[in-house]
Amino acid sequence: MTAINSPSYIGRFAPTPSGHLHFGSLVAALASYLDARSVGGRWLLRMEDLDPPREEPGAQAAILHALESYGFEWDGAMVRQSERHDAYAQVLDRLFQQGLAYACTCSRKQLEPYAGIYPGLCRNLGHAREGAAIRLRVPELEYHFEDRVQGPFRQHLGREVGDFIIRRRDGLYAYQLAVVLDDAWQGVTDIVRGADLLDSTPRQLYLQELLGLAQPRYLHVPLITQPDGHKLGKSYRSPPLTRDQATPLLLRALRALGQNPGTDLGDASPGELLAWGTRHWNAALIPRTPALPEAQLR
């Protein structure tokens, strides 16, 4: 396990181009950036463009522009998951051949009564892979880890998740498989992301174990929520980041992460704020809560 002060720290930010970056995205990007840079680590950028039907035209370019406008600098070339399909296919074939994955033809209507927990209806039916989703068999085991902010988290894969999809019926690869393979391929040691992905982590721990991959450290930052309790996100028309708001929004994001920038930074440039954040970063100050109301941060 990589120590927090290790120069070999490798972090990453991995946005989905289904829309422009918003304030919630900024909080996650800032946390991952400062956590890496504060220990002299590398910070990678990966575009998680696994789902072309959901991708908004121009979103990738807008994301890059926003990150650059807010002072972020990443190491090396950006990676696109759409260019990694061959790697995903090789692992999926291996899992299928080993009997660890199987084809599933269940419809959404069939699964409605099971409240999101797959009951194993296709587990032993031997369906052909063509035109079917591919699921990974899970063990009747509890997986647990210590999140650097949220603390201990436990999940019993059999009872609380069931066999989960690693390739969709339409042939698109699922997030759980792609993120595990890409983090390992890029040598990511520390994953900093939003708390909405907290309950995905046990599935990823299982995949890492199954594939003999190293387990990164995890830090899940609070989600920023709207007055109705919904996550600040693209599907709720959250306003995109604009260049002229870089300084005030970076200051708000620092406060959302429990950092304490002084009032003298109100006229600082984005680069100066990132430099200040890098020097003063303290992950122990991040609020230990899954969500923060946006109204409290104004």
Rank of each mutant, 00 (worst) to 15 (best):
1 M>I: 09
1 M>Q: 10
4 I>P: 14
9 Y>E: 11
10 I>E: 07
19 G>Q: 05
25 S>V: 05
29 A>W: 01
30 L>C: 08
31 A>H: 04
32 S>V: 02
35 D>N: 14
37 R>S: 07
39 V>K: 11
40 G>I: 05
43 W>Q: 13
48 E>N: 07
48 E>M: 12
56 E>C: 08
56 E>A: 13
56 E>P: 09
65 H>A: 15
66 A>V: 02
67 L>W: 02
67 L>M: 12
67 L>K: 06
71 G>P: 08
74 W>I: 08
74 W>V: 11
77 A>L: 13
83 E>K: 07
86 D>V: 10
87 A>Q: 10
90 Q>G: 06
94 R>M: 10
96 F>P: 05
97 Q>P: 02
102 Y>C: 03
118 Y>C: 08
120 G>W: 00
122 C>E: 00
122 C>G: 02
131 G>S: 11
134 I>D: 04
134 I>M: 10
135 R>M: 06
144 H>R: 14
146 E>W: 14
149 V>D: 08
154 R>W: 10
160 E>Q: 15
161 V>P: 11
161 V>L: 09
164 F>T: 00
171 G>A: 09
174 A>N: 00
176 Q>V: 05
176 Q>L: 07
180 V>G: 01
184 A>W: 09
188 V>N: 12
190 D>A: 08
191 I>A: 04
196 D>W: 06
202 P>A: 10
203 R>I: 08
203 R>S: 10
206 Y>A: 15
218 Y>W: 14
223 L>N: 07
224 I>F: 00
224 I>H: 01
226 Q>P: 06
235 S>M: 08
236 Y>G: 15
241 L>Q: 04
248 P>T: 02
249 L>I: 06
250 L>S: 01
252 R>L: 07
252 R>Y: 00
261 P>F: 02
262 G>Q: 12
263 T>M: 08
266 G>C: 07
268 A>L: 05
273 L>P: 10
274 L>R: 03
275 A>F: 06
277 G>N: 06
279 R>C: 14
283 A>C: 11
288 R>P: 12
290 P>N: 10
294 E>W: 13
296 Q>Y: 04
